[in-house]
Design a protein around this nucleic acid. Sequence first.
DNA 1: TCACATTGGTTGACATGGAAACTAGATAGG
DNA 2: CCTATCTAGTTTCCATGTCAACCAATGTGA
Lengths: 158, 158
Amino acid sequence: MSTNVMSPMHPVSDLSAHTGFLMRMVSNAVSQGFAGKLAGQDVTLAEWVMLRALYGGKPLPPSLLARKMGMTKGAISKLADRLLDKGLIARTDNPNDKRAHSLSLTHEGIAKVPALARLADESDAAFFIGLSDADHAALRGLLHKLINAHALTTAPVE
Amino acid sequence: MSTNVMSPMHPVSDLSAHTGFLMRMVSNAVSQGFAGKLAGQDVTLAEWVMLRALYGGKPLPPSLLARKMGMTKGAISKLADRLLDKGLIARTDNPNDKRAHSLSLTHEGIAKVPALARLADESDAAFFIGLSDADHAALRGLLHKLINAHALTTAPVE
DNA sequence: TCACATTGGTTGACATGGAAACTAGATAGG
DNA sequence: CCTATCTAGTTTCCATGTCAACCAATGTGA
């Protein structure tokens, strides 16, 4: 124990007083619901995000994926291994740098994305169906404000 | 927008088209920021939630905590072990049922909560400071709507 | 009362991510 | 060139959660 910078007594507010807490509650519920649907396709949330990140674009090096997905390079390395085992992505050596390589979708991976995208659409629609169009739009607007305010650029995977 | 590759089965929308995705992004950022502050007090997010759940109330059995916190009883069991080791909570045998017991805060645990609560307040305020009061209130309202719509039970039941 | 189902908790096998050590291949400076 | 330093990725260790098997105490019904 270092500096016992002890705070004077502080009122202990309820957990639900924190918007961040509410946020986490709702976010976890959405993610769990979606993860459940993905599980039926033998895909995890993180795997879906990586597959989506590789879909319709050029092959990407793990380092870039790590930044895009907000994960460490170690995590990306293992995640890529799993997708490689499942035959959904492939590695391509970089001819200019023998340390590096790029990741891309296999035919099987490409074929799988649309089905997963449909699940994502359905899952999202189902969860937010309780909101009116106006509410839904408002929510998205607020989230974007926060994303901009904090310059969030990564795709969390929890 | 989504370009080049044809959609065999389903149009592949962008990740950020999903409100659930935006929620994860923001929620993740809030939680990480708060977790960082908590780490300075040698407390994890899960530990904080349990400490807060036990603060100012009667001792609670692990089963109830599991429901309140949205975790499995196995996770609660281990989490309780950690807090026990840290001396922040204590177990009390249930005289009516020898299988059961209750968890409560120790003096040390009680003493620690207000400081953590202040961190929670500060962290939350800092994150949402970019929103106007009206926006903030609107966001909370929308989150509550979703929580109600899905009967997210990470709450009470006394 | 006794065999059996149920329930409160714990434990062990996995899964998965972060941090940091480590490896191999690039690069810069002298 | 040669060595010191970077850099891309991998691997190891650790933390933490889920799931399922398991243990012990309770409850139940004939």
